[in-house]
Design a protein around this nucleic acid. Structure first.
Lengths: 200, 200, 200, 200
DNA sequence: GATGAATGAGGCTTCATTCAT
DNA sequence: CATGAATGAAGCCTCATTCAT
């Protein structure tokens, strides 16, 4: 077969956790979608929570790669920041990324076990770190205003979290909402006289 | 007795939904905390979802009042926007407001029934509306930059959602995080040459 | 109805735990025999182990009463000891006592939870105590040999445990096995020249 | 390797059945402790019950040898009886004998299959037989009182069962409990005027 | 209004056993 | 012989909801 049953299980779980949330996703649903016996889930992943965590970490891994790649080739700090935000938002609306798992499984949502929480928190730290680097670069090349890079990063990520939830979970987001949000970020971190800002 | 059993029930439910989330909050827990019989819940509220909705609406009602009051006496649009955001954030860290119910019960989270979702969405619309009014005022008195008031309102609320989640659900928020977030908003909507902005 | 559902549940559980042992006794079996919904078991008893404990304590309670009554009217210590043993053995073959529960639920068997074990251990202590009193009486009225009453009690109870298991769980016990066992006890604690011993 | 995987499996099974009992001992636990694949258990032993039986028989075999050896060299019947009991009790507290398997796996406990039960019953018969021989010798050489050897053997074994359970499963056994139990036996089978009884 | 015993569907998880490799 | 992924039945327990009192 092309994919192992373990992989099929993980994919089915990511789909369903994203679609239905943690509680509405049952072992039976997952097993049926993956065409696999129920007992195989605990065999491979231990229990439901561990499976959930595995899903979250898998998505987060891909997310981190995307963000790193996006900022890597930027000509200046401001552009890196911009690309980071754009990559964040693009990732969040790409159905193939199973992003919704993260909307429900992240330090921004609930994890029962403390140890699992800690693992997610650690991973999310790395997500912040990519943005912090971009902001620091912007400080050095004067492409962004004099702001504290750590605090600003946390706020920008918070903004991403918020606009993403608005887009993904509510009917309020207008058509060009993400573009507006990007403008908003640029405006907030641009140097006052900042003219060109970002050329894409 | 000072409070009716129905009120005791609602308060216990708000506490527990906020603490434990929807699924971990059981009728038994609520009844025990309220010192009331289990059967009284369906008697007064119909079912769990309706009770949940009642809790959310109750919090939202108070929230709406706070935001309206905060913007009402502002000398100008920008200050109104600022006060809106400040009131939002203050409300979200006041334990007596049962804010956490909204973090878990909102159009930003899951509601099963479509009709219930619609009621919440409608109520949240009003929350946005308060900010939209403030922004419009700012446009008229030139205390804020030329932005689309609706879109900007949605973005600012999204930012509030995000920073609030960061503060309430994660360990990333630094000490003066909310102050920074307020600055961020001000910077983003201020007219370019805007000096004084807000005097509080 | 004559008996409450809770009582019906307890009786069905005693029957089945005695017949099938702990592990082969399922919630489903108990509920069916008691003509009651499965969920009622946890409602009334918390969980399977607590139900098991309740069964054991119930039987033990009756057991203790029987032993106390048996020794109460004895004319002398030796007779009290004899009657204790006889009552023990009679109880153990009376189907209406649900004795088999104790064969499987006692400090002489396995209990998972430590706290439950402690409760059973404490209760069994009282069973021993009744025999210790009888032996002490026998020491005072010289109807039994000079032995340590506590140690001897423990040995006699151990003997009861052993002969009972032989009778109840194996095919080795001959017809008049219990009578022989009683003789054995009498011989072991009788004063050497002891002639009359026990008149029943 | 020093021991075959089959042997490692049997030893691990004996350890775990003794420690945890039948139901709490799983194939997985055994396989892990023996550092062996799960599938090997059914490969070598057929199924769990057969493995359990193999463990029980293995212990019983060694037990039988010990008892036979203990009585073999006795100078008289009474001493043989005494040595039998002593060997029984010594065996039961020697950790290397895996005695606990027998405490939980014996005709005194549950075996599901009738055929397996019969095998164990047959084996236990031989254990009794050793004591019966000793008692018969004692009757012939007048070192014990005039008792029925078969019935007395069954009672003495029952006593061993009881005191052993008291010692192994409960906290009631005092320090010199086994010595007391031996005295108890000697007293019960000694000829009335019997002075020397046993010289060890 | 108020109580809590009673219901029963359904969830997660365990585990002996099978089988392809 | 040896492995361990895979199976699926069955167990315990949870919990919203009903209903007689």
């Amino acid at each position: 077969m092309a994919v192992s049953k373990k992989e099929a299980l993980l994919q089915a779980a990511k789909d369903l956790f994203g679609e239905c949330g943690y509680n509405e996703t049952t072992f039976k649903k997952i097993a049926e979608r993956a065409n696999v016996a129920m007992g195989l889930m605990t065999h491979h992943f231990g229990n439901k929570e561990k499976l959930f965590l595995a899903c979250g970490l898998d998505v987060l891994e891909n997310f981190h790669k995307k963000l790193s790649a996006a900022t890597a080739g930027a000509p200046d700090g401001m552009t890196a920041v911009y690309r980071y935000c754009k990559a964040y938002l693009d990732f969040s609306v790409d159905p193939s990324t199973n992003w919704l798992v993260l909307v429900r499984c992240s330090p921004y949502s609930d994890m029962k076990t403390t140890s699992d929480r800690d693992i997610m928190i650690e991973k999310f730290m790395q997500i912040h770190q990519v943005l912090i680097e971009a902001l620091k670069r912007g400080l050095e090349d004067h492409s962004i205003a004099r702001v504290d890079p750590v605090q600003t990063a946390i706020i920008i990520v918070s903004l991403m979290v918020g606009v993403n939830r608005t887009r993904v979970l509510t009917p309020y987001a207008p058509d060009n909402f993400y573009e507006e949000a990007l403008d908003f970020v640029v405006r907030a971190v641009a140097p006052c006289e900042g003219m060109p800002l970002v050329q894409e």
